[in-house]
């Protein structure tokens, strides 16, 4: 990873992805087992359920140096909460509002449902998201 500089062409966005232990994490594992590549600046933290992610954590992550937050959500498959998708999108909305209030673009947070075998969708989504964040530039200016 030669291109870790925070400016210009060499900008490799740091992305924090939240996955879930039983649904999206196996999907992301499968991407690895299948040797699908995505940028190594993507780091995953796994949780029990998407609905448990606090918006404050996302703001904290962006303030401290992550350039984008990707939520690999349970979607309809969530075994805990039937309205998981609805709750998660509400959390994302709150987090985006917090970001905007603090001078960051709302687009730095993205959510997509990733199933337990969604290796390719995850890889594609995270690559696209990384490209998108590249156009936004680093979250922390200067």
């Amino acid at each position: 990873m030669a291109e870790t500089t925070k400016e210009g062409k060499g900008f490799a966005p740091r992305i924090l992805a939240f996955s879930t232990n039983n649904i999206s994490d196996p999907g992301i594992d499968l991407a690895g087992s299948s040797h699908m590549h995505y940028p190594p600046t993507v780091i995953v933290i796994s949780m029990p359920c998407t609905s448990g992610i606090k918006p404050e954590w996302m703001l904290h992550a962006v303030q401290k140096g992550f350039d984008g937050i990707f939520i690999a959500s349970d979607g309809e498959e969530c075994a805990y909460l039937p309205d998981c998708s609805e709750r998660a999108s509400h959390i994302v909305k709150r987090a985006q509002e917090m970001l905007v209030k603090n001078g960051y673009e709302a687009e730095r947070i993205k959510m997509a449902a990733i199933c337990s075998v969604c290796a390719e969708p995850f890889t594609n989504q995270i690559k696209d998201f990384s490209e998108k964040i590249k156009t936004l530039g680093p979250a922390r200016k200067g």
Binding site: A2, T4, I28, G32, H35, M36, H37, P40, T41
Partner: peptide, 21 residues
């Protein structure tokens, strides 16, 4: 800490990147 499925196996094309991750 998962450094195989979510690191070494994903970034077989980028050893410095995988190491940093």
């Amino acid at each position: 800490v998962n450094i195989r499925e979510q690191c070494s196996w994903t970034h077989t094309d980028d050893k410095p990147g995988a190491t940093e991750k």
